[in-house]
């Protein structure tokens, strides 16, 4: 698949709007998780606006379409913006983020159109995605299941149960992406609980592993997803180690764990929005 420069530019424009949505939602709620949300924006934009095979509307069973599972549920503002901007629910829901009576809970729930599994308590999404991928096989459905995980989240042991399970059962219709930003709430991952050589670890578990060091460059992101798709159906699950920067797109938030779970104040919001062109119209 050839992706033109114009198409890449269009995806970058979507990403800019999604980032505006993220900081505006978190600012309005006065809490939430902007850092990781901004860091994996490009990946989810590439998936939902270009590379996932999605059906119009929302059906929980998702038969005959690609599925996405968010395991690191705290990047909910990103997920909600993506789902809303791709048509699952009106953008007018976004001001309700984290507020009483809103469908947009602090962490994703299945009451939101487009969300197939609650997440927030970490480490469960890989197993869930594997289950959904197995059902695709039972249903002779050739679609792909995508999942996204934080790197700090890999400290949860259940991931490694799932990592053993997927190759053993030849779950080769699964692309799990690790948001490899090297940060977690208490500081750099290397300092808190080192993950060591993640590539070697997943390879030792018999996964196909692709590294992408430029996880915030849209063309690189698109290309790594295409490469991962080409590796499906060959008997092994696929893992993308996507190096991103927490807080990407806003200079004072980039590359630090300090914006993992902190909302910008009015002044910081203005500084942030000045760096992100409004491309699709604010909600």
């Amino acid at each position: 698949m050839n992706i033109s420069d114009q198409e890449i530019k269009q995806l970058e424009d979507v990403a800019s709007q999604v980032r505006r949505d993220i900081v505006r939602m978190v600012h309005s709620a006065t809490c939430g998780h902007p850092g990781g949300s901004l860091g994996c924006t490009d990946y989810l934009v590439a998936l939902y606006f270009k590379l996932m095979n999605r059906k119009p509307g929302f059906d929980m069973d998702g038969i005959g379409e690609d599925l996405f599972f968010l395991s690191n549920g705290h990047v909910s503002p990103l997920f909600y913006s993506i789902l809303s901007r791709s048509g699952y629910f009106p953008t007018s829901e976004m001001p309700g983020f984290r507020k009483l009576g809103s469908i947009l809970q602090g962490h994703p729930t299945t009451h939101v159109p487009g969300v197939r599994m609650a997440s927030g308590s970490l480490g469960q999404g890989l197993s869930v995605a594997i289950g959904a991928a197995l059902t695709k096989k039972y249903n002779n459905d050739p679609s792909i299941v995508f999942s996204l995980h934080g790197d700090g989240e890999l400290q949860e042991g259940q991931n490694w149960e799932a990592a053993l399970f997927a190759p053993h059962h030849k779950v080769d219709n699964l692309i799990a992406c690790i948001d490899y930003n090297g940060q977690q709430i208490d500081g750099p991952t290397e300092k808190i609980m080192s993950l060591g050589n993640l590539k070697a670890k997943f390879e030792a578990f018999n996964w196909e592993v692709i590294e992408e060091p430029k996880g915030n460059d849209m063309r690189s992101v698109v290309e790594v997803i295409l490469k991962a798709k080409a590796l499906t159906g060959k008997g092994r699950p696929v893992c993308i180690l996507l190096t991103t920067q927490m807080g990407y797109g806003i200079d004072f938030m980039m590359g630090s764990h300090k914006w993992h779970g902190v909302a910008p104040n009015d002044e910081q919001l203005a500084l942030a929005l000045a760096q992100l062109p409004e491309t699709l119209g604010d909600y």
């Binding site: 599925l67 197939r116 599994m117 869930v128 959904a132 249903n139 149960e161």
Partner: peptide, 12 residues
């Protein structure tokens, strides 16, 4: 893992 795989299996 078994419990979460089971949850995923219901989708479809």
């Amino acid at each position: 893992n078994m419990m979460s795989v089971a949850a995923g299996l219901t989708i479809g």
